[in-house]
Simulated assay, not measured.
Amino acid sequence: MLITGKNAVYEALRSDATVEKLYVQRGETTGVVKNIIALAKEKKIVVSVVDKTALDRITQNAKHQGVALTQTEFVYSSLDDILSFAKSKDEPPFIVILDELSDPHNLGSIIRTAECAGVHGIVIGKHRGVTVNDTVLRCSAGAAEHVKIAKVTNVNDAINYLKSQNVYVYCADMDGEPMYRANLTGAIALLVGGEDSGVKRLSKELADGVISIPMSGKINSLNASVAAAVVIYEKVRQDRK
């Protein structure tokens, strides 16, 4: 897997990911890039200095910001890994379930928000929707290296399993009760739908509750990553009251 961009590359090096090689554009040796090179050498990773034309070719003209690296494929976690991680921190599980999200930029943005908010893990479907790729890693600004992500065969089975583990599942949908009125404290999984059709009917029916983001304008919906961020931080707000 190829990762590009200063933040994504730096976070990949800081994580436990197996990095194979670091590429640095000739002349890029200051600031963050200097720290990236030092960290790579500390981990005994091969550093290859190339000219911009070569780096453009290696990255297929991606916005590399003068650095790129190759690493082994992204390693997913399991639902039990996520639950165990929450337990190890002595915190009630805080999980985000994404139902057929298709845009890698949205997934990357949600991962970044989740990491900042202290979410213990994210659940995505294996067969429908976007999975973790280089675009997701870049858009997450490296946060994907620090968030446990479970790729499951069936999202509905995952919902049922989390419910069996005493995790309360809330579905975010425009016809739910205002999120400010719901009790989002404790062990919670937030179910967020895809960009086009939202949460699937059966998934919504399996949820313990349905919440909405109050709208006052003429547009009645938000971008998926923005909606996820709003709901995630409403839970954070309630937890800190």
Score class of each variant (00 low, 15 high):
residue 112 R to H: 00
residue 101 L to H: 12
residue 102 S to I: 13
residue 101 L to E: 04
residue 115 E to S: 08
residue 112 R to Y: 08
residue 119 V to H: 05
residue 122 I to F: 09
residue 108 G to D: 07
residue 128 R to G: 02
residue 120 H to E: 13
residue 114 A to F: 03
residue 104 P to A: 06
residue 96 V to K: 01
residue 108 G to W: 01
residue 115 E to P: 00
residue 125 G to P: 09
residue 116 C to V: 15
residue 110 I to S: 00
residue 128 R to N: 12
residue 117 A to G: 04
residue 113 T to R: 04
residue 109 S to L: 01
residue 104 P to L: 08
residue 103 D to W: 09
residue 126 K to L: 12
residue 99 D to G: 10
residue 109 S to A: 15
residue 107 L to S: 03
residue 124 I to H: 11
residue 118 G to C: 06
residue 119 V to K: 00
residue 112 R to V: 05
residue 125 G to D: 03
residue 106 N to P: 09
residue 120 H to F: 11
residue 113 T to A: 14
residue 124 I to P: 07
residue 126 K to W: 05
residue 98 L to G: 11
residue 100 E to I: 12
residue 95 I to Y: 04
residue 128 R to Q: 13
residue 115 E to L: 06
residue 108 G to R: 05
residue 123 V to E: 12
residue 119 V to W: 00
residue 102 S to W: 07
residue 117 A to T: 03
residue 113 T to D: 00
residue 115 E to T: 08
residue 122 I to Q: 07
residue 118 G to M: 01
residue 127 H to D: 14
residue 125 G to M: 10
residue 106 N to K: 10
residue 100 E to C: 13
residue 123 V to D: 08
residue 113 T to I: 05
residue 111 I to D: 01
residue 95 I to E: 01
residue 102 S to M: 14
residue 97 I to C: 10
residue 97 I to F: 13
residue 109 S to E: 05
residue 108 G to P: 02
residue 124 I to Q: 07
residue 100 E to L: 10
residue 114 A to D: 03
residue 111 I to C: 00
residue 110 I to F: 01
residue 113 T to M: 01
residue 112 R to L: 03
residue 112 R to G: 01
residue 100 E to M: 12
residue 123 V to G: 08
residue 114 A to L: 02
residue 113 T to H: 04
residue 95 I to L: 02
residue 127 H to W: 13
residue 110 I to P: 02
residue 106 N to Q: 10
residue 98 L to R: 08
residue 116 C to K: 10
residue 121 G to M: 14
residue 113 T to V: 10
residue 101 L to C: 13
residue 104 P to Q: 05
residue 125 G to E: 02
residue 98 L to A: 10
residue 119 V to E: 03
residue 123 V to L: 12
residue 106 N to V: 06
residue 103 D to R: 08
residue 122 I to C: 09
residue 103 D to H: 09
residue 122 I to L: 15
residue 120 H to Y: 14
residue 124 I to W: 09
residue 118 G to L: 08
residue 120 H to P: 14
residue 108 G to Y: 06
residue 110 I to D: 01
residue 100 E to F: 11
residue 128 R to Y: 13
residue 128 R to K: 15
residue 127 H to C: 06
residue 118 G to A: 08
residue 107 L to V: 05
residue 121 G to H: 10
residue 125 G to N: 08
residue 109 S to D: 06
residue 110 I to H: 06
residue 118 G to Y: 07
residue 111 I to S: 02
residue 111 I to F: 07
residue 128 R to T: 12
residue 128 R to P: 04
residue 122 I to S: 11
residue 111 I to L: 12
residue 111 I to Y: 01
residue 98 L to Q: 09
residue 112 R to I: 00
residue 96 V to L: 06
residue 120 H to W: 09
residue 123 V to N: 10
residue 97 I to N: 11
residue 107 L to Q: 04
residue 96 V to G: 00
residue 111 I to A: 02
residue 122 I to V: 15
residue 113 T to S: 15
residue 105 H to G: 12
residue 108 G to V: 00
residue 101 L to T: 07
residue 103 D to M: 11
residue 119 V to S: 05
residue 111 I to M: 04
residue 122 I to M: 12
residue 121 G to N: 07
residue 119 V to R: 04
residue 110 I to Q: 01
residue 96 V to M: 03
residue 119 V to G: 02
residue 120 H to D: 15
residue 113 T to E: 02
residue 113 T to Y: 04
residue 127 H to V: 08
residue 126 K to S: 13
residue 95 I to V: 15
residue 106 N to W: 09
residue 107 L to R: 03
residue 108 G to E: 05
residue 127 H to G: 09
residue 118 G to I: 06
residue 125 G to R: 02
residue 105 H to S: 12
residue 104 P to M: 01
residue 123 V to F: 07
